[in-house]
Structures are given as C-alpha cells and as structure tokens.
C-alpha cells in the first residue's frame, strides 16, 4: 500500500501545511506508512526550504506555475494513477480541500476533508472529522481508492505549534532525500484567470501559534467594547481573537476570527470574554491548556466548557485582570 503526503508550496502557508501533516503522521494516522512527500513549488528560492519542511525523509519535487490548482490537481492525479497510490494526504483548509476533492474526482477515489484521525481497517480507511458545526464527530468509511484526505488544518498539539516541544508539528531534523524532480512549468493550462493580484493581509501575528489568547465575543457590546478588550489583552501580553458575530458586525477584522471558519488555536491560556461559546467558536479554542470564561449570562454554554468561569461584565473584568497580569509579564 503506497501513500504520499503533499506540501503545496505554490500557494503560501507551506510551513503550516508541513506542521499539520507532520503532527498527523505521528499522532493521527495508523495502519499505513507514508514514506514520501510530494512537494509542489514555483520559485527556485523556495526549493531548499520546502525540502527541509517535508514531513518525510523521501521527497519528490514538482516545479510548476504558481496558484494553478487545476494543473496541480492534474499532476497529482497522474502521479496517483502511475504510482498506484492508496492514500494522498494533504494539509487542510480550502486549498487542501480543493486539491483532495479534485484528485479524488479525477481518479474515482474517495474524499474526506478536515480529518482528525484515520486508520486502515480491513483494506478500508476509517476517518473521523467534525460535523454538525462541530457539535458531533462523524466516522466515515472510505471505500473507493485512492483515499484523498485533507487533514484538520489545526492539527497541532496542545500548547501551540510554536512551543518547541515534541508533537509541535515540526518535523524532527532529518536528512531528506530527493527521489525525483519534475519540471511542469510549461504545463500551464490556459487559465481563465487574469489580472491576478495578491494583497497581503494586515499583519496580525501568528494567532494559530498564540500561547496566550483573549477572545472577544458579541457580549463586548460594541466596536468600542472590543477595542477596550483588545487594549487590555495587549497590556496583559495576549493576542486578540474574536468570535464570528464580532466580525459580522465589523467590530474587528476577519483575520482575527477564531473558530471553524477562522483560526484554530492551542494556547496555554485562553480567556473568552463575552462569547456564549457556540460550537463553531469552541472548535478554535478546544485545544487550549486552560480556558477562562467571563460572561454576564450564567447559563451561557461557555461557562461549563471552561476550566474557570466568572459571571460578570467582561470588559471590566478583563481590564482589571490586565492590570494585575501586566507586572508579572514584564
């Protein structure tokens, strides 16, 4: 049974992809060995770095045009057929889900996205993934091969991806071996996309790697309330995340969103201020080492899902707490 991981270095985010794949190979996958990583890259400058990031020792390199998901899917589908691959493993998120789905469609395989764990049982793959807006975990049986799987994009161990300990998603130092190199840059399918422009998003720090996170919810009451929580978080040395209702009211930018449709985190400490704790938000913080909830509603689900709960007006408590924490963090 042959299996490969794929790092797509043509679209950014290769470090996060490699971290998620590395953690998944060590902690999430049983019954099949993934021996090779296919690295898609565009710029020569990225080549060595991407090889070093690869979660397996053996690497196959494919140089291709940037951001051509259609071409990438075609290349991977051909490699899958030619190599008689049983499992193609990609890092999650929208781009990983796209490649997994397109490769699956073109090879007649089975696709499952955002997988938490997977094991081979009696010649079939059994995967778990969140369903029902993260209220339930579903187990899926993949019958047709190849199994095209994208892993949970937040596949990192508790304590954050940047904590330097084992299980942090970073592959251990290893001597990589390049098994093959292919140049597919000429294979740019006539793309319909024109005038492509990439505008970097405002720098908000690495929320996914935050060790101390404060999450502001709708209970902040206003843009000013969120700004006061943000100021208190900064004073305490914490990063700021927000819930979906906060973003939908334009009280904070989208790139601060925590949860199913935003960032998944695993901080040492997470303080949730004025959020009810919807399952979609909780998905983004459930790997936190310690959760504090501050909410005026004593029936809010977040209170039971936190280690410690404070029934009180959130902005006021957060400001008081920041003043007390700040001197300890100097």
């Amino acid at each position: 049974m042959r299996a490969v991981a794929v790092v797509d270095g043509t679209r950014g985010g290769a470090d996060a992809q490699a971290r998620a794949l590395g953690t998944f190979l060590r902690e999430g996958l049983t019954g099949v060995a993934v021996d090779e990583t296919v690295v898609l890259y565009h710029a020569d400058d990225d080549r060595e770095r991407l090889i070093e990031l690869s979660p397996t020792r053996d690497v196959r390199l494919v140089r291709m045009a940037a951001r051509c998901h259609d071409t990438a899917a075609g290349i991977l589908a051909e490699m899958t057929r030619a190599g008689d691959l049983s499992l193609v493993l990609l890092a999650g998120g929208a781009a990983g889900a796209e490649l997994a789905t397109r490769v699956g469609c073109r090879t007649g395989g089975a696709v499952v996205t955002d997988v938490l764990d997977a094991q081979v049982e009696s010649d079939r793959l059994i995967c778990s993934r969140p369903v029902y807006s993260n209220h339930m975990t579903g187990r899926f049986e993949l019958r047709a091969r190849p199994w095209c799987v994208s892993v949970d994009p937040g596949c990192v161990s508790a304590g954050g991806p940047g904590n330097g300990g084992p299980g942090n998603g970073r592959p251990a130092a290893m001597e990589h071996r390049v098994l093959s190199e292919a140049d597919e840059t000429a294979r740019t399918a006539a793309s319909r996309f024109r005038d492509i422009e990439l505008r970097p998003l405002p720098e908000t720090g690495d929320l996914a790697g935050s060790r101390f996170l404060v999450v502001a919810g709708y209970g902040a009451g206003s843009r000013e309330g969120v700004a006061r929580i943000a100021a208190a978080a900064a004073r305490a040395g914490a990063d700021l995340g927000v819930s979906r209702p906060v973003v939908m009211n334009a009280w904070a930018p989208m790139d601060r969103l925590i949860g199913v449709s935003g960032t998944r985190t695993a901080p040492v400490l997470c303080i949730v201020v004025g959020a009810s704790g919807a399952a979609a938000l909780h998905w983004g913080i459930e790997k936190a080492g310690f959760i504090v909830a501050v909410n005026t509603d004593e029936r809010a689900p977040i209170l039971a899902n936190a280690d410690v709960a404070v029934v009180e007006e959130g902005v006021a408590v957060m400001e008081e707490l920041a003043e007390m924490i700040a001197p300890r963090r100097l």
């Binding site: 339930m136 975990t137 579903g138 187990r139 899926f140 993949l142 008081e320």
Partner: peptide, 26 residues
Amino acid sequence: EPSRLIGLEAVRRARAGVVVDGRTPH
C-alpha cells in the same frame, strides 16, 4: 458515494467550570 458516514459521537467539551466568587469586577 465513495465514502459514507458510519458513526456519530457527540463532542463533549465540559471542563471543571469552577465559578469564581466576588462582589465586584476587581
């Protein structure tokens, strides 16, 4: 369908939920 749902399990998130006492935010 090449894949199918074969099981469902509720995600249980409950933690200790210890409530902190006090009269004021401070």
